[in-house]
Design a protein around this nucleic acid. Structure first.
Length: 989
RNA sequence: GCCCAGUUGGCGGAAUUGGUAGACGCGCUGGUCUCAAACACCAGUAGGAAACUGUGCCGGUUCGACUCCGGCACUGGGUACCA
């Protein structure tokens, strides 16, 4: 028997757990290194082979850093609040906590089998009260803070109140103006809510009726919910939000200083969407009202031919003339009822209405009509635009549709065909801007606008404040209660606010969130006061969104069991922030933006020393599944008239499922009666079935054609596209009696497609099976070997035999084959003789490559390099300790189990984890000669070895003297000879 | 539409600063072992009989281009009436 990975891997996993081999210390003389994975949501489906990809990469890096002498923090935990557990609870009544615990146990079991070097003592779970206590605590800090634009950071709200008092600020209450001290408690609360970083307000939210909750912009994709894919509509609601917009500029600027991929940075830049322009007011004709617009193209001011307001704009009803009132009201109703999704679906559809009112052009004084259009968004800028159809494609489309004038003010386009949006060209028809280039014109226009007091230069962001309340059960309760309608946060010593028990995980009959079902769940002050009387105060019934817990978890790992602080100063001063963060790119504008926001906020309060959560970020690619299909033959009836009868016919023909092998697709689209299925069973079956309905077919003059539809089939019963027919019949009841139309050799060939790996597509490959069959080391090596970490690639189990063979070859290097072949295992045999130069060269070449591969995150090439190394050492029949000991160390990050086993056999009693990574000694790599490729006009013809000490001139001379050179020269004289030392010789003819 | 990434054998992929294109592995073909199969081992494997041709397509720079520049196509991802 050879290498027994099952036994060896189990032993070492037990050893690591027992000895807490990977526990990180919070004080150490070693330099620190923090390697973090994005923690998973523990779903019921368990891990598939795609999940561990990033974990394996980070584990290799963490183990490498330990070998390099770093104190490494490499933790893991669970993002355990979330929708699936709650939906499961709604269906089954099972408490989400139970579901979550079960799923976590399964995840842990799967993770353990792969041999990760996580420090499990630091595990965090966001749904654990010990954890969410501090999530709530951070919320309270957000509530108690405002953003001071002067200091450009968050401060305690008390500094704002102080400011109000010092400046004697006045606040409008109804028609009166009062000082801050003169306001009632409620009025003060309302004023402060406009500044707090966590605040309650009436905002347009993304409401998802099916989920019964609101969603943040980042959770809505293509107009449907990211989770579940349900339609989302706009709705005005009182909601908790976080003022992330206060940090827009810093979130944007600080991207410069972090080593993240350009694509993620770009996605964040786009999401933040900074645009610089100017505000500009238009006076409404015969009224004191003005309409303020935001524009980035003030240079086109003389091209304005109308002004468009969002249907929700506050001035609409006031402006609208009596003649237009009906049309306007009708349009507003229409716009309101169009869901986000519809609006997006027909971007091309232009809708709008004229209000009957006019504004006056600020420079020419001309009348400009005011229109409503839903292409103008209420939530961006001022909800009103100046329309310049000549130089904005949306305005152009609107103008064309409603036959409004189009004025050319920038030369260079052809306005009869399309608008000219480019920001280059000279201004025309523009009074004082004529002749200027766009850039200069923008500047001049802003100057004039500011000079005349019409507006001023302004920056707008696309980023919206993050809606923070969710009308869900399975999340952190927001630590707020309402006293006389005033929202108040709990005292810190009242945390955690435990998620109460409810009878059902659904909204109440009156539409309140599930938490309103909790009986007797009321806030009572610890200290005596009005709320102590009676039943106490109502709590906030919304819970926090899924991203709350994940916005600071990287800090908790530093000090996971601290019961008095979210993280101790000492721990965070030591660990600072994440050195290497690995996770999926799908979090580009969600999690990765929020965690940056919270980090900056906590830094502002002086609680942590860093302003960014992660120095370096790597996005692992997705591992896609390869789905398999069977092709179902579907009779399609085209009947004239009677539809019911048509259905009856097709049902009769469909009684048994007919599945056609892929390569017999010539049979598809065959019509009724004119086929030969080349399959007796099927001919018989269909002839019988058709005979039964022949009368109806003829009566209806129906036409039958056979089409096919592809059905997903479990990839685990398909091997190399050949269906295991027995397993297939047993797989599902409806396939038991299916008629399988096979190839001539009896095989049923499946089709396939590369898709997302998902339970519903039946293409999931579980890591458990791979570990069981080939071992954890093989799985780890193979996942890395598949290709560059960042690239998406389809999973193909077949290739794993390659790395599995490699592991056996590696094992054999350290052993001599047993002579009496039967029972005995190969004998461990390593020689203490000094290594010879070729052996040392192989080793040190490999060390050099592995170091540069790991540090460049090129894990796929390092696996190749190990293979080359082992192949070469096998060729050299090398079994020297001097070579094999360092080899075990450099391979340990990738294949830790076999490395530990070999290490212990080499006579070490300690784990290989903290061995020293060998240095590359360049002296072994020095070559004395180089085999030069000799090329003619850039095409390599032959090779010639020359000593490296030879000068260029000498080589040139030698090459020309060669017989082969003369042959390729064909008697011509070379024009030029290029000799690149240690690289190439090129002869130009 | 805009932004980002990518396109190399039958497949996954490799190629340092512009310097031997196809490393390594899978698959395939042939062979050895075996009664046979599997495993294992050995040899071959970009195309072409060859001259030659080949890194998505067209063009450029260069002694020399997968690599640099200009244009285009396609694939994947992100984002979208953002004024």
């Amino acid at each position: 028997m050879e290498y027994n990975f099952r036994e060896v891997e189990k032993n070492w996993q037990d050893y690591w757990a027992k000895n807490k081999t990977f526990a990180a210390k919070n004080d150490s003389d070693k330099p620190k290194y923090y390697v973090l994975d994005m923690f998973p949501y523990p779903s019921g489906a368990g891990l598939h082979v795609g999940h561990p990809l990033g974990y394996i990469a980070s584990d290799i890096f963490a183990r490498y850093k330990r070998l390099k002498g770093f104190n490494v923090l490499h933790p893991m935990g669970y993002d355990s609040f979330g929708l699936p557990a709650e939906q499961y609870a709604i269906q089954t009544g099972q408490h989400p906590e139970i579901t979550t615990k079960t799923n976590i146990a399964r995840y842990r079991e799967q993770l353990d089998k792969i041999g990760f070097s996580f420090d499990w003592d630091r595990e965090v779970r966001t749904s654990n009260p010990d954890y969410y206590k501090w999530t709530q605590w951070i919320f309270i800090q957000l509530f108690n803070s405002w953003y001071n634009p002067e200091t450009n950071k968050a401060e305690n709200i008390s500094t704002l109140i102080e400011k109000f008092k010092v400046q004697s600020s006045k606040f409008k209450v109804g028609s009166a103006e009062k000082k801050y001290e003169e306001l009632s408690e409620k009025e003060q609360s309302d004023v402060l809510l406009e500044y707090r970083l966590a605040y309650l307000s009436n905002t347009m939210v993304n409401w998802c009726p099916q989920l019964g909750t609101v969603l943040a912009n980042e959770e809505v994709k293509d107009g449907v919910s990211e989770r579940g894919g349900y339609p989302v509509e706009r709705k005005l609601m009182k909601q908790w939000s976080l003022r992330i917009t206060a940090y827009a500029d810093r979130l944007l600027n600080d991207l410069e200083g972090i080593d993240w991929t350009e694509s993620i940075k770009e996605a964040q830049r786009n999401w933040i969407g900074k645009s610089e322009g100017t505000s500009l007011t238009f006076k409404v004709e015969n009224s004191d009202d003005v309409i303020e617009v935001f524009t980035t193209r003030p240079d086109t001011i003389f091209g304005v031919s109308f002004v468009t307001l969002a249907p929700e704009h506050e001035l609409v009803s006031k402006l609208t003339t009596p003649e237009q009132k009906n049309a306007v009201d009708e349009y507003i109703t229409f716009a309101k009822n169009r869901s986000e999704r519809e609006r997006m679906a027909d971007v091309k559809k232009i809708t709008g209405v004229f209000t009957g009112a006019y504004v006056l052009h600020p420079f020419t004084g001309k009348q400009i009509p005011i229109w409503l259009g839903d292409y103008v968004l209420a939530g961006y800028g001022t909800g009103a635009i100046m329309a310049v159809p000549g130089h904005d494609s949306r305005d152009y489309a609107f103008a064309k549709h409603f036959e409004l004038p189009i004025i050319e003010v920038v030369a260079g386009g052809d306005l009869s065909k399309e608008s000219y949006d480019a920001k280059e060209g000279k201004l025309i028809n523009s009074d004082f801007l004529n002749g200027l280039e766009v850039k200069a014109a923008v500047k001049k226009a802003i100057e004039k606008i500011e000079e005349k007091g019409l507006g001023k230069g302004k920056t707008n962001f696309r980023l919206r404040d993050a809606i923070f309340g969710r009308q869900r059960y399975w999340g952190e309760p927001i630590p707020v209660y309402y006293e006389n309608g005033i929202p108040k946060v709990l005292a810190e010593n009242e945390l955690p606010l435990i998620l109460p028990e409810v009878d059902k995980y659904l909204p109440t009959e009156t539409g309140e969130p599930p938490l309103a079902r909790a009986t007797g769940w009321k806030y009572k002050k610890h200290t005596p006061g009005p709320s102590q009387e009676g039943n106490g105060c109502e709590y906030e019934y919304s819970t926090m969104p899924g991203w709350a817990g994940s916005s600071w978890y990287f800090l908790r790992y530093m000090d996971a069991h601290n019961s008095t602080e979210f993280v101790s100063k000492k721990a965070v001063d030591y660990w600072q922030n994440v050195d290497l963060y690995i996770g999926g790119a799908e979090h580009a504008t969600g999690h990765l933006l929020y965690v940056r926001f919270w980090t900056k906020f906590l830094n502002d309060l002086g609680l942590i020393p860093v302003t960014e959560p992660a120095k370096k970020l790597i996005n692992q690619g997705m591992i896609q599944g390869v789905s398999s299909f069977v092709y179902r033959l579907v009779p399609v009836i085209e009947a004239k008239g009677d539809r019911d009868k048509g259905d009856k016919i097709s049902n009769a023909l469909r009684e048994n499922l007919i599945l056609v092998s892929k390569n017999r697709s010539e049979l598809f689209n065959t019509g009724y009666g004119d086929y030969d299925w080349k399959d007796e069973e099927l001919n018989k079956y269909l002839t019988e079935k058709e005979a039964k309905v022949r009368k109806e077919i003829d009566e209806l003059e129906a036409k039958i054609t056979y089409m096919y539809s592809a059905l997903h089939v479990d990839v685990n019963i398909v091997s190399n596209n050949i269906l295991d027919q027995n397993a297939f019949r047993n797989w599902r009841e409806e396939y038991k009696n299916a008629i399988l139309l096979t190839e001539e050799n009896g095989d049923y060939i499946c089709g396939n497609a590369v898709e997302k790996m998902s339970k519903s597509l039946w293409n999931v490959v579980s890591p458990d099976l791979m570990v069981e069959q080939y071992g954890a080391d093989a799985l780890r090596l193979y996942e890395m070997f598949l290709g560059p970490l960042e690239l998406s690639k389809p999973w193909n189990t077949n290739g794993i035999t390659g790395v599995s063979n490699f592991i056996r070859k590696l094992w054999r290097l350290y052993h001599i084959p047993s002579t009496n072949n039967e029972q005995q295992t190969p004998n461990f045999s390593v020689s203490d003789e000094p290594a010879v130069k070729p052996e040392l060269k192989v080793l040190h070449k490999t060390i050099k490559k592995i170091i540069s591969d790991i540090e460049g995150f090129s894990f796929n090439t390092s696996v190749s390099n190990f293979m080359i190394c082992v192949n070469e050492l096998t060729e050299l029949k090398c079994n020297k300790r001097e070579i094999l000991e360092p080899l075990a160390i450099i391979i340990a990050p990738y294949a830790p189990h076999i490395a530990e086993e070999l290490w212990s056999k080499l006579g070490h009693s300690e784990s290989i984890t903290y061995a020293a990574f060998p240095e590359c000694k360049e002296e072994y790599l020095v070559e004395s000669a180089f085999n030069y490729p000799v090329s003619f006009n850039g095409k390599t013809r032959f090779f010639q070895e020359y000593d490296l000490s030879l000068s260029k001139e000498a080589i040139e001379k030698e090459v020309l003297a060669l017989e082969q050179t003369q042959k390729y020269l064909e008697g011509k004289t070379p024009k030029k000879i290029i000799v690149v030392h240690n690289k190439i010789v090129n002869i130009v003819v």
